[in-house]
Design a protein around this nucleic acid. Structure first.
Lengths: 290, 290
DNA sequence: CGCGATACCTGACTAAAGTCAGACATCATG
DNA sequence: CATGATGTCTGACTTTAGTCAGGTATCGCG
């Protein structure tokens, strides 16, 4: 009654019926699921027809018919793209936006309803994050972003909060050598965010310096995404970027209160070196030649 | 990017495609999904046709046709029930059992494959248990069982393990007043197990005594099922059983290291009383008149 | 400009799932 | 034993999703 496979299968059964309930709530608006999915994809900002078709995995004939039916309902308009008149763009009309909003409300109500049943909301949400990250693992993308953008700032906030919990003396950003945002932008460096669907679940910064090396900073992986080798992927991404930028030597500092980080560095060709800065927080220093 | 509804919806999206993959793996055996689901329901021990129809939510016409197609394939046999010839029973033939086994293998392989991706198996499984319990909350049933049966023993084992973790001095069953199994069977008492799908997720014992009262023993709720008010449901069930058995006074002992239990008792009409036994573990004693 | 490639559309088709009304045998009850 | 209720079956039908083979307009390139 306890073997892992049957636990997974119990989860599958539970979730199948819950997801089925969501689907059928979408049917309540008198439109088949296929059309509703296309409408929602457009509402969520996808406008290129080929992109939607690809995202939803639809045949081009079927896609065309679904677009036609939405058009007949007066919910969308399609126009040829200016730069290539073969391709088409779909946009919501006023009525389409109303309908999309109604679907959003349904979806949110369904989500809230699911949460309302449970008194330990946060535990349930954390479990969902964990599972979503595990299931979408192969669809996690690394994206170069400005270190000041919303997603990057979210990651950094979580990172600092985690250091605060893990360091016995806490963590105060202002005491640490905060890397300047422009040092983590091309061409001096870069900043990578790991995105799972629309949620940032990890980040790493490559910070250019004037000392003949670049530094790896702010490596963070969301608790829900640990165990997926994401730290390794982020480090690989940062190293590739460094090579592209013609950087030959990398350094980083870390703390022995973060043993999993130390293990990662040691197992991927980093070599411990003496202290190379006077930041009060780190007590371990590494270097890697590319 | 962090509001609860969008976290739930991200989970939904992630899980929809994973569940879709399971479904399509079932299509690999050249049979439509509907027929495969019926075959699997029969394989899992459901034989009454009306029960299967109800479980799978099928129309009786459709159900009949699916049974016919499985029969034509030589996978099942249907017979009229002896006690009511209108109702029909379906059983697997030898070929049907082979086919069912193949589906089971597919299902297990799919489950294992999902787990294999993740290095923190136990965390992933715990998250799945939590979600499955939350989603199937309204389908949790309380069942009277023999305290010696497999499900009951599993619950008790988990219960003792938890006490061992929660009590600073640990917990040794042999030092505690182990209630005799026959005191927790009708007509002296009873033993209730909360079942979610096929997994036991909680229990409570009603133990008859010769002192003019009965005792509540072994109240346990699986960690994955906490926050669902299951403790309250179990206690309600035990009290109803006590009333049926003509028991007018209930007592229980507990420990202040289990504060959630104490809160539950106080909020449901239990009154603290002086120590009424010499068990070394409890330090709190309650009574409730029915 | 001509030509193959590309993006989308249309028509014809199929499979699966499901609905509904009525037929038929059996059951419980007065 | 007549009667209405129940469980199953059958035939006729619909909806949805999806496939496939052309058809048409447009694009990039020699």
């Amino acid at each position: 009654m306890l073997d892992p496979a049957s636990r997974v299968r119990r989860f599958n059964r539970a979730v199948t019926s819950a997801v089925g309930a969501l689907d059928s709530s979408f049917l309540g608006r008198g439109r088949p699921l296929g059309a509703a999915r296309v409408l929602n994809a457009i509402g969520h900002g996808r406008s290129d027809v080929a992109e939607i078709r690809d995202y939803l995995g639809l045949d081009s004939g079927l896609m065309s018919r679904l677009l036609r039916s939405l058009e007949d309902e007066g919910l969308i308009e399609t126009t040829a793209r200016e730069d290539d008149a073969r391709r088409r763009m779909a946009t919501l009309t006023r009525a389409g936006r109303r309908e999309f909003t109604a679907y959003e409300a349904l979806s949110n109500a369904q989500a809230e309803g699911l949460l309302a049943q449970h008194s330990q909301r946060e535990a349930l949400l954390a479990a969902m994050d964990l599972i979503a990250s595990a299931l979408t693992r192969e669809r996690v993308t690394l994206e170069e972003m400005d270190p000041r953008c919303e997603q990057a700032r979210y990651c950094l906030g979580e990172y600092y909060a985690e250091l605060g919990r893990r360091f016995s003396q806490g963590f105060d950003v202002s005491l640490s050598r905060g890397p300047d945002a422009k040092d983590m932008r091309r061409p001096r460096g870069t900043f990578l965010v790991a995105m799972s669907d629309t949620l940032p679940i990890g980040c790493v910064g490559l910070k250019g310096t004037d000392h003949g090396y670049a530094e790896i900073k702010r490596l963070w992986v969301a608790p829900a995404a640990r165990g997926l080798q994401l730290g390794r992927r982020l480090m690989d991404g940062a190293e590739s970027a460094a090579r592209e930028l013609g950087i030959a030597l990398l350094r980083l500092d870390t703390n022995s209160a973060l043993p999993e980080a130390g293990r990662l560095y040691r197992s991927t060709g980093w070599r411990e070196i003496p202290r190379f800065n006077d930041d009060p927080y780190p007590d371990l220093f590494f270097e890697k030649r590319l």
